[in-house]
Every structure is written in C-alpha cells, then in structure tokens.
Design a protein around this nucleic acid. Sequence first.
RNA 1: GGCCUCGUCGUCUAGCCCGGUCAGGACACAUGGUUCUCAGCCAUGGAACACGGGUUCGAAUCCCGUCGAGGCUACCA
Length: 432
Amino acid sequence: MDVKVRIAPSPTGNLHIGTARTALFNWLFARHHGGQFIVRIEDTDLERSKKEYETNIIDGLKWLGLDWDNEQLYRQTERLDIYRKYLQQLLDDGKAFWREYTAEEQDEMKREGRPARDRVIVLKDDGDPERAVAFDDIIRGTVSVQAKHIGQVVLAKDLDTPLYNFAVVIDDLDMAITHVIRGEDHISNTAKQLLIYNALKAMPPKFAHLPLILGVDRSKMSKRHGATNIADYQTDYLPDALVNFMAQLGYTYEPEIMNRQEMARQFDLERVHKSGAVFDQAKLNWMNAQYIKRMKPAAFKALIGKPELPDAAVPLMTERLERLGDVAQFVYLWKESEYESEILFWKDNDAAITIRALQACDELAKSGDLTKDALDRISVEQFDGKKGSVYWPLRVALSGERNSAGPLDIANVIGADSVRARIAKAISKLQS
RNA sequence: GGCCUCGUCGUCUAGCCCGGUCAGGACACAUGGUUCUCAGCCAUGGAACACGGGUUCGAAUCCCGUCGAGGCUACCA
C-alpha cells in the first residue's frame, strides 16, 4: 500500500507551532515510506478564514523545508461540488436528515450571538447506543467510545456549506489518504468521523494521534506561553534547527543533532510518545546554536547580510550566537562603536597606564607585529606581567564592549588601519 | 459535570512490550579548568520511576486501585 498523508491546516490563524510539528511528523512518515505528503487548506469556516493566513501557512511550511507533493493546493472551498454530491447521497439513502429547528432553538442561537438558521444536515445513527465505536490508534492502541457519548454529528449547514467533520472524511476518502496523523485534540472527533465512514460504507484510514506541544504550565501551547506563529521564529532561528527541535517533541533521535533526511530514515510512527511535551525555549536556543556553529562562512555571511566580511569574522560570531537576531552585538566587526571611556580601564588601572598600553599596541600595529607573542612580551616587560593591562584596553578600544571576542581576533578581521584608528580614538577619549 | 487520553530528573527523554542496570543521555543549573572579558570547549556535581496495594526470590517494568495532569464537550477547525 502506498502511503499518502496530509497536513490540513485551517486558514483561521497563522501557522501554529503545533500545526508545524504535525506537518513535520506527516512529512517524516511520508518520506520514510517513499509516500506522498499533501497540503489541504481547510477553509470551510467562511467567516474566519483569511487569505493572509493561508499565505502565512504556506510560507511557513516552505521556510521549514517541508515540501509537499500536490502541485496545486487543495482548498475545501473549491471542492464544494464533491461534498454536495456525498451529502445528497447520504440524504437519499436515509443516512442523514434535515434537522429542523424550533422557534425556541432559533431564539437561543440569537441569544448566544450565533446566526440563526432553520435547519442543518445531521447524520442519522440508529445503531445500538450501547455499542462501542472504536479504532486502533497507531500511537495509543485501541481508543473506544460508546455510541451514546458521541453526540449529534452535524454534517453541514446546508448542501453548500459542509462542516469540518464531514469535509475531512470526504476529503481523506476522496484523496485516498492512508494515514491520518494529527494532534491529540482530535481524538474525540475521530469517533464522529468513524460514524460518517460507516454511513458511507467506506474503509477509514489508519489513525495516529500525536501528543500535544505544551506550555510551561503543561496546558496546550498558546500565545500566552510565547510565540506560536512560526513566522515569529524566522528572525532568530534556522529552519533546520527548529525542525530538529520540533522533531524531538514526542520522539527520540540518537544522536540529537540530526538532519531531516536521516530522521525520515529512522522515523517510526509506533515509537511516537503518548504524553505531551513542554516546549523548552532554552533547548531550542541550544539546538539553534549548534546549527549556527556548523554553518559555512559564506552561508552565514549571506544570512546576516554581510557578504563583504572576511571569513575570519564568522567563527567569532557563530561560536557565541544562540539567536540570529543577536548578531547586532558584533557590530564592532564592521563598524566602530561608541562607548564610555571608563570601560577602557582594566581593574583599577588609571588613565596613564592605560594610555601607555594602548600606545605600545599602536606601535606594534604600526610595525605589523600585533601578535600574541608581542603582546605577552610587552605585558612582561612593561606591566609587571599583567596581561590584562594590555589585552583589556586593546580589546575594549577595538570592540567598544566589556565583553567581546579577543583583541587579536578582532584586529585580524578589521585590519591594521582600523586598529590604529580605533586605538587613536581610545587614547584621545582618555586624554580629553 | 460527562467522555477520552496521559503520568521516569526543573525540561526533552532511554529503559517498560520480553521483571534482575549504581535508573542512562541531552538541555538547564552549580562548581572547577582553559582565559584580558564574554562565549566556546573540557571536567565534576546535585537532580526522577506520582501514590498505595497485589503477583514475584526480585517491580520503573506485570495486575488492581487512588491521586494528579491534559484534551474534547460548536450550526470552529
């Protein structure tokens, strides 16, 4: 059997981190089996669906590198004919019926602020209410509900306005989806959908319900826990790092750092965990740092929009960066920065000794001998062997920061002329 | 409330199916080393089987119960 799975986001919001993770697991499963992964936009909720959300979702999936196999995007609003056909068929077969609302019920809808309508199409279930409606979840094993607990299955508002549970079933059937891999929050919908498959005399696909991504308070991850919109991660995180991180929420890969192809090779749905996983920003940051550190100089420079920098500048940044947005803290590698003259003093050194150290450094720069050996020698000969008296003011003169990369590394990046200019500026700051 | 699901360090988790490990790893945290500072890197450390019964020579692992947590409970998806 050829595997075919889908991600079915509804464009009623931006690409949520949870949806992205579900998409990733579907992608991993499809790629593992050499099957198909398709994207279907579930836009049956006309009031809340927006084109901008659809764009955000598509852009997010592309950014994450989760490529799909349907050339054209499926949209439920473009498939209304299909739903109508099945709806009519169920109605004709007596498997569904128009449920008329009484005046009182309509009044209540109005009171609840919902648009009142006089009837909807409901699935007819005249089976034994005590019977078990069950399915074998690949991740959780048997999940069973008694029919009487399922409740009314409303299929559509009218022939042209299908509702979620009905539209998913028709689509999954029509598109020959073999495995429905989705969030745990859909478990209770599954029973309703099973009833619909049954009425259609169709074989349901296999189901696998993923554990949820949780916030620190262990409730379903939402905006109050932090960013849920994938787009919000694009300025700070590498897509490969985010993917690697999300893949481990509910699954274990060994080693932890692994590219998506290798993850796909190993992936096994049955090994997905049952319990929810807290989204740990600190671990994401660490993972991101791992990927940043491994970047090739050219790629990194292009990413931060500084292609003109020498390659030597790259490790100075990549070894220290957790989030790409923080790259601004390395401005000193391409631009002289402002700072308070007091930070030039190492420990309790005064201006005179600091100026003397800077002048010595300038001499070295002038003669092209700004090296570790030379600096160490000066420390010993002129500053009682206190390397800080030399290294610290030089480094601050070059970076304008209390904390930065080493002075020799910076000098190597900015060149002798800039070194001397920055030293001169530091000295003048101290003399004024 | 009802229905469904889940429960190993603070977090992600290995181990559970097929009982016997000092319950392992990673992140985070702490300490030390490298060092002019920061980061990085290296080393070390503290840190968990939700609870109670049962089965067994032996239980994180098997069984029962309790407690706890989450999800769903729309004419949203």
